[in-house]
Simulated assay, not measured.
Amino acid sequence: MIKIEGVSKNYGRGNAVSNLNIEIKDGEIFGLLGPNGAGKTTTIKMITGITEPTEGRVEINGYDICKNPLEAKLQFGYVPDSPDMFLKFTGMEYINFMADVYRVSKKDREIRIKELSNKFGMENALGDTIKSYSHGMRQKVVIMGVLVHNPKAWILDEPLTGLDPKSAFILKGMMREHADMGNAVLFSTHVLEVAEKVCDRVGIIKKGELIFVGTLDELREEFKADSSLERMFLEMTDDEEY
């Protein structure tokens, strides 16, 4: 479970995020939606401990990300919005580095790496350097590195960007399977059709403020209409570009 309580972030020129309150439950996929610059990535950086909140607190499976950062960070796997990292490593070196960080045993990592590389079609590419990969392949190896320790909570910032249709389909299936096993999945996306098909609940952020949290049925009830998520989203965010 991920709890966000009264979280705000001020960079000195006003709040980038204001008084967010969200509880992402075990067993659900929660989609964080909003126009560019709405505060989605800032929120995710506070949840993962990259950025400290100006106010409020974040708990992951009972651990405060600021007071108990190591314990909290062991609870989740985080896919950032850019896969351009550790470019001099080979894919295998990067995944093993991540496995070392999370103290994954040799036996468990071998099983997990084989499973993930087969799913994402990376069996023959892990010996190559990450800088030689396409954007989609970099995204795959980052996801593999995140999942190698089999974290309970998944926190994914635009995880489908750059993935080919097959890999995107596989990842969405893995997200569903992980949630169905009683774990929490949080992901941000601009692809509203994905959120509509995958999410159990969504949160919509506009200018750093949470303007809706709930299921799509609850959103439709609020609008009193049988509309698509895209139409409702555009109406709520004043047709801002997303």
Score class of each variant (00 low, 15 high):
191 V>H: 08
65 I>F: 01
202 V>T: 08
234 L>H: 09
5 E>Q: 12
231 R>N: 11
13 R>E: 12
162 G>A: 04
121 G>Y: 05
36 N>D: 04
41 T>N: 03
183 N>E: 02
33 L>W: 00
108 D>C: 10
143 I>E: 03
186 L>E: 01
147 L>P: 07
27 G>K: 13
209 E>G: 10
223 F>Y: 10
214 G>M: 02
89 F>G: 10
181 M>K: 14
120 F>E: 04
218 E>L: 08
102 Y>S: 13
145 G>W: 08
118 N>K: 15
183 N>S: 13
17 V>D: 00
126 L>Q: 05
44 I>Q: 03
92 M>L: 15
124 N>V: 13
202 V>S: 03
185 V>C: 02
152 K>S: 11
127 G>Q: 11
228 S>G: 01
219 L>M: 13
35 P>L: 06
134 S>Y: 06
212 F>P: 10
31 G>S: 03
33 L>E: 00
74 L>E: 06
83 P>I: 14
218 E>H: 07
30 F>A: 02
106 K>Q: 12
161 T>G: 11
215 T>Q: 05
236 M>L: 15
1 M>V: 14
174 M>P: 03
3 K>Y: 06
4 I>T: 13
185 V>A: 06
160 L>M: 14
194 V>E: 01
145 G>N: 05
28 E>T: 15
242 Y>Q: 07
65 I>S: 07
149 H>F: 08
177 E>M: 07
168 A>W: 06
33 L>F: 01
108 D>A: 15
170 I>Y: 09
170 I>R: 11
196 E>P: 09
230 E>R: 12
129 T>Y: 02
225 A>L: 03
11 Y>P: 07
8 S>Y: 01
20 L>V: 10
225 A>W: 04
203 G>A: 15
23 E>I: 15
170 I>S: 09
216 L>R: 06
119 K>F: 08
234 L>K: 12
30 F>V: 12
4 I>R: 08
43 T>S: 10
103 R>S: 11
112 R>P: 03
232 M>E: 02
186 L>W: 04
169 F>P: 09
238 D>I: 11
23 E>M: 09
229 L>E: 05
222 E>N: 14
88 K>C: 01
160 L>W: 02
71 E>Y: 00
70 L>N: 09
195 A>T: 10
126 L>M: 15
15 N>W: 08
31 G>D: 03
172 K>H: 06
34 G>I: 15
60 I>G: 00
162 G>K: 05
157 D>S: 02
148 V>S: 06
124 N>T: 15
201 R>E: 09
213 V>M: 02
29 I>W: 05
165 P>D: 00
128 D>R: 15
95 I>R: 03
26 D>C: 00
96 N>P: 04
231 R>D: 12
37 G>N: 06
183 N>H: 13
226 D>E: 14
4 I>D: 05
179 A>G: 03
47 I>G: 00
62 G>Y: 03
182 G>T: 12
90 T>Q: 08
238 D>W: 01
170 I>P: 04
26 D>F: 01
141 V>A: 00
177 E>A: 12
25 K>E: 08
187 F>C: 00
210 L>N: 00
111 I>M: 10
159 P>T: 10
113 I>W: 08
195 A>Y: 02
80 P>H: 05
122 M>P: 07
123 E>P: 04
193 E>A: 13
240 E>I: 14
185 V>T: 11
147 L>G: 06
71 E>H: 04
213 V>E: 07
133 Y>T: 11
189 T>E: 01
141 V>Y: 01
174 M>S: 04
36 N>Q: 04
240 E>T: 14
159 P>S: 08
